[in-house]
Every structure is written in C-alpha cells, then in structure tokens.
C-alpha cells in the first residue's frame, strides 16, 4: 500500500526566522482521507505544497514509498482553490491534459476524459468552453482532471472554498464517491470543520506561529455515508456535533487565550 509520508518537516521561507511549519509528521496512505484545518497562517497550504513537491522542506523529509520527493509528479495530483483550468482548451481537453503529457494517444485520452467527466456529473459537457461553466462545474472539471491521471494521491487545496453552501454539500457527497472509486489517498485543506468531519478518515488541526499539529483524530462519518447512511442524519448526530465542538475548540484555543490576555474578550462579549 502506497504511503506519502512527511517526517519531521520544517519550512522557512527565505531568511525569516519564524518557521511556517515546525517539526511536522504525517502519513497519508492510499484509501485514507486526511483533512487539514486551522486558522489562516497555520501553514495548511504550505503543508500541501510540501506534499505536492512545489516547495522543499527546510529540514525533514517528504517521501513516497520511501523514495524522496524532489518535485511535483503525476503520482500526486493537485486540485487548486482557483480551478487552474486552461481557458484555451475545451473542457474535455483540460481533463485529457495529464494523459496527453503522459503520452496517451488522442482517441484514448479523450475517451477517458469523457468517462471522468461523466463521473463528476458533467456528461456531454466536454465540448464546452471553460468559461461557459459555473464555479461548481469548473471545480468538478478540476477534480476530473486530477483523477484522470489516476494518481496515488489526490491533494486538494480548499477546492470548495469559493462555492456556495448548497453546492458544497453536493460536492461533499461527490468527493466521497470519487475517492472511493479512485482508491487514492486524499488530502484536503479546508476552512470548514463540518467538511473535514464529514469527509475524512482523519482530521489534523494546525495552529499558527509556528505551524504545528495540535490535534489529530480519526472519524468514520464519510465511510458511513458511503455505506448508505443519510448525510443530514449523520451531521446531526450527537457524536458529530461533539466532534465539531472539539475541533473548533482546538482551532480557537490559542486565539481565545491571546485575546483574553489583551482584554479583548470583554469587548466582544
């Protein structure tokens, strides 16, 4: 079973003394879904950039199955917050691009691209231009494109951040089904505690200054949804609500104490 492991990584940008991430370890196995939450500045995106190979750790190692990661590669597909689609290519050509880069012939890559488009609910939309799609549709194209390369790991940097709440709920269910189908190890950077709880087999809470893990917990709400349970019933379970409060407490812990120290709490309430 493939594993993407970050061991004791720290990251400094430039010569600034404050590390963005400090001494962080994380294993992502195929078939797992790890979400990373935390306030702005806690190094969530830096963590994903390390895993993707866009940046190298200042200390520590990033490995896939024991091999050191030296840069980005097709085993680790990335979905970006801005969909990062190419407007000069039609929708299906966007999805087929990873296959083209891998040397797959035109007919086969288009057939596979159309399969993935159907899998994200965009059957028959392949000939459209990117700008003719809504935000949610574009993000689904981005996900289809990432999965078309059949990656071992799917790294997602707040892919649903710009979508409205109703679209997000539908995307959550779609993401779980795609994750199950692809068998990839998924890493999701998100601001939404509910999203992390519902989707993940494991949630990591990061705290800023320096970026580090303050809580890691395993969950099974997503698997239970895939087993056929009702998503709204799951999200209103006492166990779900209690877990949400635990994660929120971990996220705001230090902020609350800092604000109390500065006397801001009285003004706020």
């Amino acid at each position: 079973m493939s594993v993407l492991s970050l061991s004791r990584v720290s990251l400094h940008y430039g010569t600034s003394s404050a590390p963005v991430l400090q001494d962080l370890s994380l294993d992502l196995r195929r078939g797992e879904f790890v979400s990373v939450i935390g306030r702005s500045g806690s190094g969530k995106t830096s963590l994903l950039n390390l895993a993707a190979g866009f940046v190298s750790p200042s200390t520590g190692t990033v490995r896939v199955d024991g091999r050191a990661v030296t840069g980005p590669g097709p085993d680790r597909a990335v979905v970006f917050q801005d969909d990062a689609l190419y407007p000069w290519r039609r929708v299906e050509d966007n999805v087929a691009l990873p296959l083209k880069l891998a040397g797959v012939g035109r007919d086969e890559r288009l057939a596979r691209a159309r399969d993935w488009l159907a899998a994200v609910g965009l059957e028959g939309q392949g000939a459209k231009h990117v700008w003719q799609l809504s935000g949610g549709q574009r993000q689904r194209v981005g996900i289809a494109r990432a999965l078309a390369s059949e990656p071992e790991f799917l790294l997602m940097d707040e892919p649903l951040g710009a979508l409205d709440a109703m679209t997000r709920d539908l995307m959550h269910e779609l993401l779980l089904k795609l994750w199950q189908r692809s068998h990839a190890g998924a890493m999701l950077i998100t601001h939404s505690v509910e999203e992390a709880l519902f989707l993940s087999t494991s949630v990591l809470v990061l705290a800023p200054d320096p970026g580090r893990v303050v809580l890691q917990e395993r969950f099974s709400f997503g698997r239970r949804f895939l087993a056929g349970e009702d998503p709204r019933a799951l999200k209103s379970e006492p166990a779900f609500i209690a877990a949400r409060e635990r994660l929120l407490a971990a996220i705001y812990m230090k902020e609350a104490s800092r604000m109390k120290k500065q006397g801001h709490m009285k003004e706020v309430g």
Partner: peptide, 29 residues
C-alpha cells in the same frame, strides 16, 4: 499564466518544454 496553472501542469508531470508549449505559450497568445 497563473501560478496554479503552472503548478497544475507540473503536478501532471509536464517537462519544461511541455510546460512552455501547453501553458505559457497559449497564455501568452
């Protein structure tokens, strides 16, 4: 070309030449 457009192609395994041909040149048109 945006940073994420370039990084996406890199993550799909684009070589330098492929990156220029598939992303930078069309973005520059």
């Amino acid at each position: 070309a945006s940073e994420s457009q370039i990084r996406a192609a890199q993550a799909f395994g684009a070589t330098r030449v492929q990156l220029v041909r598939e992303v930078m040149l069309p973005a520059a048109l």
